[in-house]
Amino acid sequence: MGREVRIGVIGLGGMARFHMEQLGKVDGARIVALCDVSDRALEEVGEKLGIAGDKRYPTIDELIGDADVDGIVSVTPNDSHVAILKACMLAGKPLFAEKPLTRTLAEAEEVLELYKSNPIPLLINFSYRNGPAFQYAKDFIGQGKLGRINHLFVQYLQDWGSTVKNTPFLWRFDEAVTGTGTLGDLGSHMMDIAEYLTGSRMTELQAMLQTIVPERIDPVTLQSVSVRVDDFACFNARFENGSVGVFQTSRNALGSGNQHEITLYGESGTLHVSTLNDRQVSWTYPKEDGGTVTETFEVTGVEGLNPWKEFASRIRGDRSPNPEYASLEDGYRNQLLLETVVRAHLARSVVTV
């Protein structure tokens, strides 16, 4: 197990609760400090976890500067990502951060430059790499079983922003906080999983962004507010390996709770993976008589990736980092792709990455 690692958590919203639950399963990892702008959240989570009152911080600098904290898990809105990344680098504090890396490419470049002179153990949470079925697919493709990849289709659909849901104006609809809409939120996952599974980089993009629900009600003022970010995005990509990809993502796909999936069409068959069952992989291949057969593999022997366990290991420095996890450079690459999609949309043409 090694020495105990003491974790500080920044941001105590719904996703943070999941991170804390998973950290609780890691031998030798213990949450010792919390940070949030909400006094109520600090009190609620602090009492639940038994965190002392003097370890419940209202500012990131106080938590990051705490000598009793060995590493930081950050789960905050996008507009605070840069400040947390920079503060951890300057303090030499290991960091496990949510994607996207930043709001804009300019911010990502600023972070990358600082990281070169102030490297720290750092994980960016592109979480769909972790799933057992996606890990099975990665190995399947890596063994050459798919053959040459001709084309692929990736989609990430949710329905919580649909008109009938009457979802109010939240931070994910606020351009100043989020940068882009569903593109940066869900599209970032699609881009990461496509390049991760294929092992090939996108070289050209063409895109179309749309705001399907142009106004939402501010829950505080009860006034209508204009939405300046996309809630639907689609784009096409050409890859270095010669394959092409079609991508779509939406917050308006009624009936789709959290549907992230990829289908890869190779010369030897077709491979399909979906979050709708992250322990199944569908494989379609040719029969000798000219037809095809589809098999569904139950992925029982693959555990997937455990980033919380990996983060604790990196803090201890007890083994070489696993390269399967997304690095800061991967986060920067992802931000570059997001920026290129926006450029392609505005230019209404194919844009080189």
Results as ranks from 00 to 15, higher is better:
189 H>L: 12
208 M>W: 02
216 R>F: 10
205 L>G: 09
255 G>E: 05
203 T>H: 00
155 Q>Y: 11
189 H>E: 12
165 K>M: 15
213 V>D: 00
249 T>I: 02
215 E>H: 13
210 Q>E: 13
239 F>Y: 06
269 G>Y: 06
161 G>R: 09
185 D>G: 10
241 N>K: 03
189 H>A: 14
230 D>M: 00
250 S>W: 04
238 R>K: 10
201 R>I: 09
254 L>R: 00
232 F>I: 08
200 S>L: 13
199 G>H: 05
210 Q>A: 09
194 A>E: 01
180 T>F: 13
243 S>Q: 06
171 W>D: 14
268 S>K: 03
194 A>N: 02
219 P>E: 01
232 F>K: 05
188 S>E: 08
215 E>S: 12
254 L>T: 07
262 I>P: 02
235 F>G: 02
254 L>C: 05
197 L>P: 00
228 R>Y: 10
225 V>D: 03
189 H>S: 15
215 E>I: 09
235 F>V: 04
267 E>P: 04
246 V>W: 09
180 T>Q: 12
251 R>Q: 07
222 L>Q: 12
259 Q>D: 15
251 R>S: 09
253 A>H: 04
263 T>M: 06
194 A>T: 04
176 A>H: 12
253 A>G: 07
165 K>A: 15
176 A>Q: 13
256 S>K: 00
217 I>R: 05
180 T>H: 13
206 Q>T: 07
173 F>M: 13
199 G>C: 13
241 N>H: 04
236 N>M: 06
216 R>K: 11
171 W>L: 15
265 Y>E: 04
249 T>A: 02
216 R>M: 11
239 F>T: 01
252 N>G: 05
207 A>G: 07
228 R>Q: 11
210 Q>W: 00
156 Y>M: 01
217 I>C: 07
174 D>S: 10
160 W>L: 07
258 N>Q: 03
248 Q>V: 08
252 N>T: 11
151 H>G: 00
205 L>C: 14
159 D>H: 11
194 A>W: 01
188 S>R: 06
189 H>I: 07
191 M>D: 07
193 I>Y: 11
202 M>F: 01
196 Y>Q: 11
214 P>W: 08
261 E>A: 11
238 R>H: 08
162 S>R: 00
182 T>L: 07
223 Q>C: 07
230 D>N: 04
178 T>C: 12
249 T>M: 02
210 Q>F: 00
214 P>A: 12
231 D>E: 07
242 G>K: 03
256 S>W: 00
172 R>H: 14
266 G>L: 02
236 N>A: 05
151 H>Q: 01
217 I>Q: 06
175 E>C: 14
160 W>S: 10
180 T>N: 13
207 A>Y: 08
